[in-house]
Simulated scan of single mutants.
Amino acid sequence: MADVSEFYVEDMTCGHCERAVREALAENLPGAAVTIDLPRHHVRVEGDAEKAQTAIREAGYTPVAV
């Protein structure tokens, strides 16, 4: 089973934000399963937590591990 990381991303507020986060994660963790709950600002992703957090940050958002 792959490692799973979860983040609270307060500044992910709309569909555009969700797409940007998804694209950043897909680019940095190809093939990783990503689940986003936009109303809760919650991102769940398989793979390396540090890579995921860096990808979200580089996309312009502020992830906090949960």
Rank of each mutant, 00 (worst) to 15 (best):
D37F: 03
A59F: 01
R44Y: 05
Y61W: 05
L29P: 04
V21F: 01
T62A: 14
L38I: 07
E46I: 07
V64Q: 13
D11T: 02
E58Y: 00
S5K: 08
E6R: 15
D37N: 15
C14F: 09
V4E: 13
M1H: 13
V64W: 02
E50F: 00
A26M: 09
V64Y: 03
T13L: 11
A49E: 10
Q53G: 14
A20H: 12
V4T: 15
A33W: 01
V21I: 15
V9W: 08
T13Y: 11
E58V: 02
H41P: 06
A2W: 11
T62R: 12
L38M: 08
D48A: 03
R22G: 03
K51P: 02
V43R: 04
H42L: 14
D48G: 03
M1P: 12
R19A: 13
H42K: 14
R19K: 14
L38G: 05
H16C: 09
E27I: 01
L29E: 02
A2C: 08
A26P: 03
V4R: 13
P39W: 09
A59D: 02
E10L: 11
V66E: 14
P30Y: 09
E10P: 11
H42I: 00
D37T: 12
E6I: 11
V4Q: 12
V4K: 13
A55R: 05
A20C: 08
T54W: 00
A52S: 11
A59T: 01
N28L: 00
A55M: 08
H41Q: 13
L25K: 06
E6F: 03
T13F: 11
V64T: 14
G31N: 10
P39Q: 10
E46N: 09
Y61N: 04
A59C: 04
G47N: 04
D11M: 03
V4N: 05
Y61M: 04
A65L: 10
A24W: 02
I56F: 00
E50R: 10
Y8F: 15
C17D: 05
E58M: 10
V45F: 04
N28C: 04
P63A: 02
F7Y: 14
A59P: 04
D48N: 15
D48S: 05
T35L: 09
G60W: 07
Y8P: 01
L38D: 05
L25I: 06
E10C: 03
K51R: 15
Q53C: 07
F7S: 05
A55K: 06
R57G: 13
D3M: 12
E10A: 15
G47L: 05
E50K: 10
N28M: 06
S5L: 09
V45G: 02
V4S: 09
A52F: 02
M12N: 11
G60E: 08
V43K: 01
G15H: 06
F7N: 03
S5M: 08
T62I: 07
V64H: 09
I36C: 05
D3G: 09
